[in-house]
Design a protein around this nucleic acid. Structure first.
Lengths: 256, 256
DNA sequence: TTGGTGAACTTGTTTGGACAAGTGCCGTTC
DNA sequence: GAACGGCACTTGTCCAAACAAGTTCACCAA
């Protein structure tokens, strides 16, 4: 088997391929609604076996970017790629991926005991200390989101050595070796409280889009619990699902 | 290869396996946080090859129900399975899957020309007629959501022969052969207007969670455009993502 | 007791082959 | 010209094998 470029990267082939395919789609090289090359063609083009090509395509399928069926060639369904873990977890990463400039103004960073509600969510004993950060995030200078984050001490203490006005907490923590691996996001709506209203420049009680997030480490510990409130006319959430592929999104009821 | 039960079903093996695994998890047979049997064990248990078992597990992985890594046994990450297409698309299906009783009161069903905004969203010419349905949906008798649906005439006309107070429009349409295959959902927040406020029993301007949906046919035509507004303390949306698996959810900005 | 080595086991990656099932096209036939 | 049949091509499914890479745990040595 002949490899044209003996890649330096140690990423598995199927992952490099799916990244390549994603890029071909987002760059418009493979156009929406148009069929992409057959599996056999992709095999010979990249010098890999069909299993590997299928593995790469399966990744795109599960994201809803590609559809297709038996006999029919696969078709580009959605030109907008789904977002990587980092892009979805980090406001800064997200902004950069859009070519926008993220901004942040830290209003408070404090260490205080968790109240009962927060302790319950984070699996701590009530009164155990957490590091709380309150920031106003902006896109190209426009206030967009109020971010309230709570970190466990072990993680949060590292933040006192970081200028939270300088950029991404997510990026800083990962560069420090904190292994954020999983996020659980609950999306609902909430009326702006006095703080939200003042920071975002809206009337108190205005509808805000809230993303309530729990961030887990690889071993299952909860590292962070946050409450992000977006101006709904500046950002929202999109999901696609099809009969063939289940969406990872779930609509849940809340018991009264 | 020996099959214990030569199944009558013509579903592919990997799909039957993934359904079985999903059921084992939701029934508590495989408990959250506990490792599940090794791939080799599952192979011998079900008399299939490793590739097939991995294909079944990949399905669960992409839904975030199972995690794992090289060397480590796969672990049940989330006991709540993701929702099928029907469960996520249909309020009635959703309620039933939770063991709750869905309710609906039709306030209006009308045929009128689409305004410019709606026509743009649905890819129609302004003034082309659509069928509009306004319903109040409830869970166990409690008002939960205001549903505003717009159907293209071809689909909507079938609704005049259906009692929209009797149950699921989604279910009725699919039973009539309408091929709803894809949904695009935009989630944001909105203040309650006068109608919402009265129906849901809240103050005008209260924050509501809005799901704005476009439903597509297999050939890509838009069949339905809806605006569902939930009481945020009664229902919301949850998504999980990990470093390994991209989520199908995307956070998008709105240009000012 | 502690530390390190290594074997056994696990999952991840990749290849190759075979068959089933669906689509599209071309040519034949009526 | 239209309908039919068959062929080429495509994707879906399934199997078997081999190696790479990480984890776990028992065993042995210091």
């Amino acid at each position: 088997m002949l490899k044209y470029v003996p890649s330096i990267s140690d990423e598995p082939i199927h992952q490099r391929l799916s990244d390549l395919f994603r890029e071909k789609i987002s760059s418009g090289d493979w156009k929406e609604g148009k069929p992409l090359p057959s599996e056999a063609e992709l095999c010979t083009q990249h010098g890999v076996s069909r299993g590997t090509v299928r593995q790469a395509l399966a990744s795109l399928r599960s994201e809803g970017m590609v559809t297709g069926g038996r006999g029919k060639p696969p078709v580009v369904a959605r030109p907008v790629p789904s977002q990587s873990f980092a892009t979805f977890m980090s406001f800064s990463e997200w902004a950069h991926s859009l070519g926008r400039e993220p901004g942040q103004r830290t209003l408070e960073i404090a260490r205080r005991p968790a109240d009962e509600d927060l302790a319950g969510k984070m699996g701590l004993r009530p009164g155990e200390p957490v590091i709380q950060v309150l920031r106003l995030r902006s896109l190209d200078g426009n206030p967009t989101m109020v971010e309230r984050s709570n970190f466990i001490v072990e993680v949060g203490n590292a933040l006192f050595g970081f200028d939270t006005d300088s950029g991404s907490i997510f990026g800083y923590l990962t560069s420090r070796g904190v292994d954020l691996t999983r996020g659980r996001h609950v999306i609902d709506a909430v009326g702006a409280d006095a703080t939200d209203a003042e920071l975002l420049g809206v009337e108190p009680g205005s509808a805000l889009l809230r993303e309530h997030r729990l961030t887990y480490a690889a071993d299952g510990r909860i590292l962070e619990c946050s409450d992000d409130r977006y101006l709904p006319h500046l950002a929202n959430f999109v999901i696609e699902n099809t009969r063939a592929s289940r969406a990872a999104l779930v609509r849940v009821p809340l018991v009264a």
